[in-house]
Design a protein around this nucleic acid. Structure first.
Length: 275
DNA sequence: CCCCAGCCCTGGTCGC
DNA sequence: TGCGACCAGGGCTGGG
């Protein structure tokens, strides 16, 4: 499940390799990947454009084009990007949804088993409004601090974990990192957001930043399908404290890690350490 | 405005 | 061996 650390890892791998390259053409093998935008729109707005820069916003990967438009890719649950130098072999065409071909022969292949992933072109004049409507601040930037988190938790009754997962409040945190950050902060995932004390808010800010930074350093988490652009696994899953460890001992107190549902998502926590 | 249930997708697992 | 039920969950919509 590519969340912020996984998308960041992919972006850092692609950026030096593809910045400055020119898109020859994009092949859309599954029209669902561009929906509701028709494949021809994506093809037309990217053909012959130069990649001026690459970036990440939340879980979105951005190719900033010399036209001022942005090619946006979201991997959702099972999407994978593979950087290739040569045309794909037949076996690699399984579940290939999109192929970005660059002048000179390099390409980026977008594979996706579940077909949730998306690719679309965001016109330059619409970009600011698009992100503003959907995404809160980047959790690794200075603007994400105790004052900000205190502001968005105040008065809210929804569980703190649901709030962390809501991209409109904070961009990029998914199920894995919400569980791990709440554990590190010693906060129960079902706590009503508005009941967090000032200390807890401060701890949670630091836990989120530390967890994400460590995950980026370990190149993300590979539980199931996630791989980087070279097909390699991340290593953060080897350091999970609670996520996907129900029934196992808590590394802090030796009690048993439990699993519940919060906002429809599987949630792992230690009932003794998280209050 | 706030919050949650349900939907989209497919492969893997489980019970019968 | 086959088959249906169910689960995984990011982002979005609809409704209370």
């Amino acid at each position: 499940m590519p969340e912020l650390p996984e998308v960041e890892t992919i972006m850092r791998q692609l950026k030096p390799r593809f910045t400055g390259k020119t898109i020859d053409r994009i092949d859309v093998l599954d029209p669902l990947v561009t929906a509701p935008q028709p494949p021809r729109t994506l093809a037309r707005l990217t053909k012959g454009r130069n990649v001026a820069d690459m970036a990440r916003r939340g879980k979105y990967l951005l190719f900033e084009l010399d036209s001022g438009d942005t090619l946006v890719i979201h991997l959702r649950m099972t999407g994978r990007l593979t950087a290739t130098k040569t045309p794909l072999k037949s076996g690699e065409k399984d579940r290939l949804r999109l192929l970005v071909r660059f002048r000179g022969g390099a390409a980026i292949a977008f594979h996706d088993v579940r077909r949730f992933g998306k690719a679309f072109v965001l016109p330059g004049e619409k970009a600011a409004g698009y992100w503003e409507k959907r995404l809160g601040p980047e959790p690794l930037e200075r603007s994400f601090n105790r004052k900000f988190l205190g502001g968005i938790t105040a008065g809210r009754k929804r569980p703190i974990k649901s709030l962390l997962l809501d991209q409109k409040f904070i961009a990029g945190i998914g199920n894995i990192y919400a569980d791990e950050a709440l554990y590190a902060a010693g906060i129960h995932p079902l706590r009503a957001a508005g009941t967090l004390t000032g200390d807890e808010v401060a701890r949670l800010v630091e836990s989120i930043k530390a967890t994400l930074r460590r995950a980026i350093r370990l190149q993300g988490s590979s539980i199931d399908t996630y791989r980087d652009t070279g097909g390699r696994r991340g290593r953060f899953q080897e350091t999970f404290r609670v996520h996907r460890r129900q029934g196992e001992p808590c590394p802090g107190c030796g009690g048993t890690v439990e699993k519940i549902k919060v906002g429809g998502r599987g949630t792992y926590f230690c009932p003794a350490c998280q209050r």
